[in-house]
C-alpha cells in the first residue's frame, strides 16, 4: 500500500514537471475556451437577457469542447516514448498509475478553468447569485471529464487520427454531465435549490473515479500491444 502511494506521488511529480515544460499545450485549450465563449455574444447578439439565459449551457459546452482538445496529451507522449510500457511493468497495479495520470491532467487543465470561470460568467452576464453554483459544477464535473476522457484516450492513443474519433466516442457519454451541470446553474439563477443536480454530479464523480481506471487499464492493454 505504501508502495502504491509512493509510486502515485512519483508519477504525479514527474508528470507535473513534464507538463510544466509544455506551456503552450496548457494555454491553448484555455484560450480556445475564452474565444468560444466570446463568440456566442457575437453570434446571438449582445442582449444581456439572452446571454444570461444561455450562459450555463454555453460555458459548459465550451468547457467540454476545450477539454477534448487537451485530452490526447494524457497518454500520447508516454505512448510514443515508451514510458507507458514502463508504467505497465511497475510493481503496482496499473490503476494506481492511471489515477495519477488523471489527477495530473485534472490539475493542469481543469484548475485553470476554475480560475477563469468567474470571468466567463461575467462575459456572459450570468447573475452573480449563480456564480458559486457554476464554480461547484465545474469543480465536480471536470474530474469526470478527465476520468472518462482517460478511457477514450486509452482506446485511441495508438491511432494516428485519434482526435476527431475521441470526441465522437466521449461526447455522447458526457451528456448526463452537461444536463445536470446546466440544470444546477439554471436552478441557482432562478433562485431554487441546486443541491439535487449537484448531488447527482457528485455521484457521477464517485462512479467514474472508481470505475474508469479499470476501463483505462483494459484500453491501454489493447493499445500498447
Amino acid at each position: 500500500m505504501a508502495n502504491a502511494a509512493r509510486i502515485f506521488i512519483q508519477i504525479v511529480k514527474r508528470d507535473l514537471r513534464v507538463a510544466s515544460r509544455q506551456r503552450s499545450d496548457l494555454l491553448n485549450p484555455l484560450i480556445f475556451l475564452l474565444i468560444v465563449v466570446s463568440l456566442f455574444p457575437l453570434g446571438v447578439g449582445p442582449g444581456p437577457d439572452i446571454l444570461a439565459r444561455i450562459a450555463p449551457g454555453v460555458i459548459w459546452v465550451s468547457a467540454l469542447l476545450s477539454a477534448m482538445l487537451g485530452l490526447e496529451r494524457m497518454f500520447r507522449d508516454d505512448f510514443r516514448d515508451g514510458a507507458l510500457e514502463q508504467m505497465m511493468l511497475l510493481p503496482v497495479s496499473l490503476e494506481v498509475s492511471v489515477l495519477a495520470k488523471i489527477a495530473v491532467h485534472w490539475v493542469m487543465t481543469a484548475v485553470p478553468i476554475l480560475f477563469i470561470a468567474p470571468l466567463l460568467a461575467l462575459l456572459l452576464n450570468l447573475p452573480t447569485t449563480a456564480w458559486g453554483v457554476l464554480w461547484v459544477t465545474l469543480l465536480l464535473g471536470t474530474p469526470v471529464i478527465s476520468a472518462a476522457g482517460a478511457i477514450g484516450v486509452a482506446l485511441t492513443v495508438s491511432l494516428n487520427k485519434g482526435g476527431a474519433l475521441l470526441s465522437l466516442l466521449l461526447l455522447p457519454l458526457l451528456i448526463p454531465l452537461l444536463i445536470f451541470a446546466t440544470a444546477a446553474v439554471e436552478a441557482a439563477v432562478s433562485g431554487l435549490s441546486a443541491t439535487g443536480p449537484l448531488a447527482l454530479m457528485g455521484a457521477f464523480l464517485v462512479i467514474t473515479i472508481t470505475l474508469a481506471p479499470f476501463a483505462v487499464k483494459a484500453g491501454l492493454r489493447v493499445s500498447v500491444n
Binding site: 485511441t156 491511432l159 487520427k161 466516442l169 483494459a218 489493447v222
Partner: peptide
Amino acid sequence: ALYVAFEDERAGGKAASILALVG
C-alpha cells in the same frame, strides 16, 4: 468507428468491446 480506426483487427475488436461495455 473505433473498430474501423484500428489497423489490427484484434486490437480494434477489443477496443470496440471495451467501448460497448462502457456505453
